[in-house]
Design a protein around this nucleic acid. Structure first.
Length: 754
DNA sequence: ACCTCAAACATTTTT
DNA sequence: TGTTTGAGGT
């Protein structure tokens, strides 16, 4: 314990001990940046700094939990307890609940997830009678999110001619109206989306000098992990908080910035130098994680990016094996290859499941992998996709919880008012929604005093609404008295959700019941380990939890499947990166601009640097996508890897790598051949089918500027520009009476007229 | 109000 | 391929 600083190398130690001024730590992958943060906090505590005055912001809840545990081990639980450590979102929601009345919110405000936001936007679009083809909920939500992350409030948006012009060009003239309504509805329901947690915190600090100075005094020491992935609002908040003491330490790696779609801004690192001219930089360049081959291969990739802070990541570790690059026939072959390889390594080197990770660009890729792992009886866990808290049955129950804590939460109410069936249908809900909006109130308030409003609903339904209101009200009264677990059990039983789930004996039904049971277990756990164990306390924790925070007991020794994004900050002895194909990795959406291509490259860099011992990269020449086999070409990133670090394998299944076990090899060869043969015939049929259609009806390979074309929705028009090739080929067409449209040729069913 | 089935449609990463 | 929407029937 005395020698805690001996755990650090000289560069790390300097960074950890420089605690009297702004510090920027640029840390290469695997260079021990978490270690620096951890020991920096330990060092502060050793100097008798009050933990209450330390704010440490991490990127995930999991990272903060792990860091806290590590610190507790060194300084003892009591000394670490009052540290303020967590994600931006969780720390700021804590502050916002505490200061809620200052911003006109209930301390029990609900946090809307993406689905809630989309539903709200959908109903606003419907209400305004807008064309849902032009106003797509997903796009609108993203745009609102981007605006909020850049601190462009509704007022600022309306004044911003550039932004207005953008929306006018996209024919979304009513966007401002939607944005404005969205915000006022959230306010009315006492709900915040993820972005509000940041935005409202900034507004709170900006508008209330007393509150700001209170937190400036409190957070004398500020530490931020993964700084390269902070966005503009986060930057503004931190700038305000750190203004008084300027005791701020940021840790990051520009080469690992992979969240620009969420508003992350590398500019924040550059601003740091301007905001704190007296800052000191430390570079951590020694990699402790990976073999020389892996480190140098990763360097050779990131070198291709133009935008970066120069650094030289190196390692003392041994050379290690070459990176294997395998070509496979299809996504299923790829899955089989990965599963076979894992199985072989496992028996050959006596490794454990948890030593392996399979990383992919998109969640959809997990299916083929899962299937082959299951077939070979390899135990795995999968992160992402639909997380536990997003499962329908869980969200339904959580909607009851939400409504009971915050009855003005209209989205929760709409979700469960007729689930299970109470005979309150769509028409009634729409009616109530309309009345609520006209009276600038919430559906719950209408239902509570039906007689006060002019309502066009028949007697029978009124009675049903009254029953519903009584039913919920009873729980609302109890919510303040009973502990969460007891109340939850009552809710699930009295609503009849439990009995209807138990009645469903299908596979899916059983797993749904399991999930509900798991939720109850979680609640029980929560009640036993927390003093404040009301439902509202539980919900405050839950709304910001993600999949990764949900550790199950038997999860510790399993193969990990996740997206590269989710793998940030993690490490594994054996790593498989799959699907290295053009339009997948790099992604279709990203091959447009240099900037997004560089981000994809950084993403690949992150993936490579997760590996400690060995790295396997694979790609398939056909992939089953959207109900069709599509031809794939290898990713440009593969060619960017220096040849001296790699070993190429085609259909690696037949190579020496697998020959150590002749018995299994022959067994699998037979199976492989059989399956491949089947697959090929199926494939051929499918390809022919699609080709026939496209050749006969609309062969667009020769499309050029000036051609007259017909689109079954937009009518006839003239091609004014062609760009991209292959799958990415796009046409800009001017349609008579409609205007310009950009169309992806592989989707748009264009017919050439002349 | 609710159920069922067929057609249309989509196409990234997440706190 | 899987999910969502709409029409039509009960």
């Amino acid at each position: 314990m005395e020698n805690y600083l001996e755990k650090l190398n000289p560069a790390q130690r300097k960074a950890a001990m420089h605690t009297d001024g702004p510090v920027m730590v640029i840390a290469g992958a695997g260079s021990g940046k978490t270690r620096v943060l951890t020991y920096r906090i330990v060092h502060l505590l050793k100097q008798k700094i009050n933990p209450f005055n330390i704010l440490a912001l991490t990127f995930t809840n999991k990272a903060s939990k792990e860091m806290r545990n590590r610190i507790e081990e060194i300084v003892g639980e009591d000394n670490a307890r009052n540290l303020w450590m967590g994600t931006f979102h969780s720390i700021f929601s804590k502050i916002l609940r505490f200061e809620a009345e200052k911003i006109n919110y209930s301390p029990n405000f609900t946090i809307y997830d993406t689905e809630d936001s989309k539903n709200l936007i959908k109903s606003i679009i419907k209400e305004l009678n807008l064309d849902k083809e032009i106003y797509k909920t997903g796009i609108i939500r993203n745009r609102i999110s981007t605006l909020k992350n850049n601190f462009i409030t509704v007022d600022k948006y309306i004044q911003n001619t550039d932004l207005n012009k953008q929306d006018n060009i996209a024919k979304r003239t009513e966007f401002g109206k939607i944005y404005q309504l969205y915000c006022s509805r959230c306010q009315k329901s006492s709900a915040m989306d993820f972005d509000d947690l940041l935005l409202k915190t900034y507004e709170l600090f900006d508008n209330d000098k007393d509150v700001l100075s209170k937190y400036q005094e409190k957070f004398k020491y500020i530490l931020i992990d993964e700084y390269q992935d902070t966005n503009h609002v986060q930057y503004l908040i931190i700038k305000k908080l750190a203004k008084l003491y300027k005791n701020i330490c940021i840790v990051g790696d520009d080469a690992q910035s992979i969240y620009s779609f969420r508003g992350a801004n590398i500019q924040n690192i550059l601003n740091f130098k301007l905001d704190y001219p007296e800052y000191k930089t430390y570079k951590l360049e020694q990699n402790y994680r990976s073999t020389k081959t892996i480190v140098e291969a990763a360097n050779s990739i990131i070198k291709k990016n133009e935008k970066q802070i120069k650094k030289n990541v190196w390692t003392n570790n041994k050379e290690g094996d070459k990176i294997i690059i395998a070509k496979t026939g299809s996504d299923n072959d790829e899955g089989r290859l990965v599963a076979n390889t894992i199985s072989d390594i496992k028996t050959k080197y006596q490794t454990q499941y948890k030593d392996f990770a399979i990383l992919y660009r998109t969640n959809a890729q997990s299916r083929a992998l899962e299937e082959s792992l299951r077939k070979r009886n390899l135990s795995y866990k999968i992160y992402g996709g639909i997380s536990f808290y997003q499962r329908k049955e869980i969200k339904d129950i959580l909607a009851y919880f939400r409504l009971i804590i915050n009855p003005n939460d209209d989205e929760a109410l709409k979700r469960i008012i007729n689930f299970p069936r109470r005979g309150i249908g769509l028409t009634t809900i729409q009616n109530l929604n309309l009345i609520a909006n006209n009276n600038n109130t919430t559906i719950w308030k209408i239902i509570k005093s039906l007689d006060k409003y002019e309502i066009n609903i028949n007697k029978g339904t009124i009675k049903k609404l009254e029953e519903f209101s009584l039913f919920i009200n009873n729980f609302i009264i109890n919510a303040k008295k009973k502990e969460a677990f007891i109340l939850a059990e009552e809710i699930i039983k009295q609503t009849g959700l439990l009995s209807s789930l138990s009645a469903d004996t299908s596979m899916e039904g059983i797993s749904r019941l399991d999930n509900v049971q798991e939720l109850l277990n979680g609640l029980k756990n929560f009640c036993e380990s927390n003093e404040n164990n009301k439902l509202s306390d539980f919900m405050q924790e839950v709304s910001l939890l993600t999949d990764q925070d949900q550790e199950k007991e038997d999860d510790d020794n399993k193969i990990t499947l996740m997206t590269v994004h989710a793998a940030k900050g993690l490490e594994f002895p054996y790593v498989f990166i799959v699907g290295l194909e053009e339009n997948l990795f790099p992604n279709v959406m990203s091959s447009e601009s240099q900037e997004s291509l560089e981000e994809e490259r950084r993403l690949f860099y992150v993936a490579i640097t997760r590996a400690e011992k060995r790295l396997f990269i694979s790609f398939a020449s056909t992939r089953f996508k959207w109900g069709q086999f599509t031809e794939c070409i290898p990713s440009r990133f593969i060619n960017e890897l220096d040849n001296k670090y790699i070993e190429k394998q085609e259909m690696a299944i037949e190579k020496e790598y697998y020959q150590h076990s002749i018995q299994t090899k022959t067994k699998y060869r037979k199976k492989e051949l059989f399956q491949i043969k089947n697959k090929t015939s199926k494939k051929l049929i499918n390809i022919n089918k699609t080709k026939n259609i496209s050749i006969n009806k609309n062969d667009l390979t020769n499309i050029t500027n000036g051609m007259q074309v017909r689109h079954n929705q937009f009518g006839t028009g003239k091609v004014i520009n062609i760009s991209g090739d292959g799958n990415n080929k796009k046409a800009i067409v001017f349609f008579n009476g409609i205007g310009q449209k950009q169309l992806l040729l592989k989707f748009a069913k264009l017919e050439i007229l002349n």
